[in-house]
């Protein structure tokens, strides 16, 4: 207990220091690296707080995708902030200081940290903890809540990813219906990096395999469709970086990815509609099989598949979009 609390204090203080450093450093490349550290620190904190699924996701997002996208953007917009306006915005500083002080006072009324008799622990959560292993039949309660009790939120989450992907592609490339996408320059930049290529060749199959493991192990341990999708996409992105975008596109062309992104949402939605047709409510998995628990199993398996498909294809598609766009804006007349 003491160790937990000591680690808690250390990690949180490190987070604050990193945040302040991000605010002060002018070199954008350095701040992006710092936010990667920030992501990793918060992921470690989440492990400490028993939130292993969240830690897994935060590590892949906060220390993975986010810095990767940021670096892609820096390659367009340059590394340094404009230097002329080196000033502290005093009114804003005072505003945040005062609001912070008010909040600080108010939070002393929060139920004490770590207590087991707080309202948050007492009411709705009790059923998830005590009954979900029987009702849903899988040990990971986070997966039970995510995929079944609050499965509709997760459908919304997949929809958010779909929306963002359509948005990114149309903003960067001007089309969501490829086919007319511009031809790619043959990139052989990495051809000389033999070591990277060979190590990559060995790693990529393992990464893809690990993605499948995370996809189907989410019922028992941390993991699930989202994390698996991100890992799978990472494998493909690594391939694209080492062997060229055109090679990656031969394996996974844009039209296929676009279709898959939509397909994932459709799979998820169809499981919901199947529940309707089988006489239950929307997203009721219990009616999908002869007994409720195996119905829940089947439903969760299918919707996690939908999540994985949409996430993996979206991430690769977003990566393509950032790689294919030209900063000098040839796609639309403006």
């Amino acid at each position: 207990m003491i160790v937990t609390q000591a680690l808690d204090v250390v990690l949180l203080l490190l987070l604050v220091m990193t945040a302040v450093a991000i605010a002060r450093v002018k070199d954008l490349f350095a701040t992006v690296m710092l936010s990667g550290i920030y992501g990793l620190l918060s992921a470690s904190f989440f492990v400490l707080m028993d939130a292993v699924d969240v830690a897994f996701t935060e590590a892949s997002v906060g220390a993975g995708i986010f810095p990767l996208l940021m670096l892609a953007v820096l390659s367009f917009v340059g590394r340094y902030e404009a230097d002329s306006k080196r000033r502290v915005a005093l009114p804003v500083f005072l505003l945040t200081l005062v609001s912070g002080a008010v909040l600080l006072l108010a939070t002393t009324q929060m139920p004490a940290f770590g207590g087991e008799d707080t309202p948050a622990q007492q009411h709705v959560a009790v059923r998830y903890i005590e009954d979900s292993p029987q009702e849903i039949g899988i040990p990971n309660m986070v997966t039970s809540v995510l995929a079944s009790y609050r499965g509709f939120d997760t459908l919304g989450e997949v929809l958010v990813i779909f929306t963002a992907t359509i948005g990114v592609v149309v903003v960067l490339l001007g089309v969501v219906q490829p086919g007319k996408a511009r031809s790619l320059p043959a990139d052989e930049d990495m051809a000389d990096h033999k070591v990277l290529r060979i190590v990559g060749k060995m790693l990529i199959p393992l990464i893809l395999l690990f993605a499948l493991y995370v996809q189907f192990h989410g019922d028992y341990g941390p993991g699930g469709g989202f994390q698996a999708g991100v890992i799978f996409a990472t494998g493909i992105i690594l391939y694209a970086m080492l062997f060229g975008l055109s090679n990656a596109q031969r394996v996974l062309p844009m039209p296929l990815l676009r279709g898959l992104t939509a397909l994932g949402v459709m799979i998820y939605g169809s499981v919901g509609v199947a529940g309707l047709l089988a006489g239950g409510n929307f997203l009721d998995y219990s009616v999908l099989a002869s007994d409720p628990v195996s119905g829940q199993h089947l439903g969760i398996l299918l919707i996690e598949l939908g999540v994985g498909v949409t996430v993996a294809s979206s991430m690769v598609l977003i990566f393509y979009a950032f790689s294919l766009t030209t900063s000098s804006d040839g796609s639309v007349e403006r």
Partner: peptide, 12 residues
């Protein structure tokens, strides 16, 4: 309407 067949407040 209970989405997923779970009664409120456990379901949506």
């Amino acid at each position: 309407y209970e989405v997923g067949g779970w009664p409120a407040p456990w379901g949506i």
